[in-house]
Amino acid sequence: MTRSARRNLRNGLLFISPWIFGFLTLQVYPILYSLRMSFTEYTGFNDMVDVGLQNFTELFKDELFWKSAYNTLYYTALAVPIGVVVAIVLAIAMNQKVKEVSLYRAILYIPSILPVFALSFVWIVFLNPKFGLFNRIGGAIGLPTIDMLGDPAWTKFAIVLMAQLGAGGPALIFLAGLRGVPVEMLESAQIDGAGPVRRFFSITLPLITPVILYDVIMGLAMGLQVFTQAYIITSGSAGSGGSIGGSAGPQDSLLFYVFYLYKCAFQYSQMGYASALAWVLFIVSVVLALIVFKWAKSWVHYESE
């Protein structure tokens, strides 16, 4: 190694040393430490008692574990595809050539940067069957009143709808993708007689598949860790008597995985069991991301340059 190469290596490591330190202490160590905890019974106060694989075997018999896993996968399976479609539609709207487009763009984007905790409160009011605008408007066009947050069949869909307020962020990325589609390609397709719908599906859509992949991966990661909305909406539901986190929505329909993990660790003081839950989440996230990447090879279009 030459002197300058050695100097560069030293300087490079020096510059990134805060990241190395943070990576080791705030990510690698906690993940390994929770693996260690997952083999113990631990309340946070006592000494850890080794119990071998007991937490993991218990987990598979735990009804609430399955319930929360089901709720989370159900939510993610709905939220990710709907989110992609909404974001693309928003991006197309943001791409219209009208004078007020920058105003529209702002209105569509702003909700995505607003705090979820505040939006959750707004959502409680908006979906309220008595004075919420949602049911008023639904009623005006002839839909029956739905108590979205009170009916276990609808609660998760209510959260999916709420997540769409955040579609403005990904929409901006799709917008950049739309702008990257060569105009000549669209024009020559038009000359060949392809209508706007045909042009979108045959030219635009294949060209923005890398953005779709990015959005799916991000959506998956966000979907698996959905927490704040459920925590706020359920601890406010009538009847829970202010006992924060006491319920998880009607029939536990909003008991998402991270919500359950949180309850186990910080309300039931089962740190060992919660660590086992954390590890399962870690493995499932990695596996799902790998599956999506593998699967993406068959539909993501990369320019062959």
């Binding site: 190469a5 560069n8 160590y29 906690p30 929770s34 927490f227 660790a265």
Partner: peptide, 30 residues
């Protein structure tokens, strides 16, 4: 700065974006 192993470590740094924060909360709290 051009240094040996840089791109590999950068790749690891990018991957950490996808590690769900809740995975670490129990351990971090303790």
């Amino acid at each position: 700065i051009q240094w040996a192993g840089r791109d590999l470590i950068f790749f690891i740094a990018i991957i950490t974006i996808f590690i769900p924060f809740p995975v670490t909360i129990v351990a971090l709290f303790d």
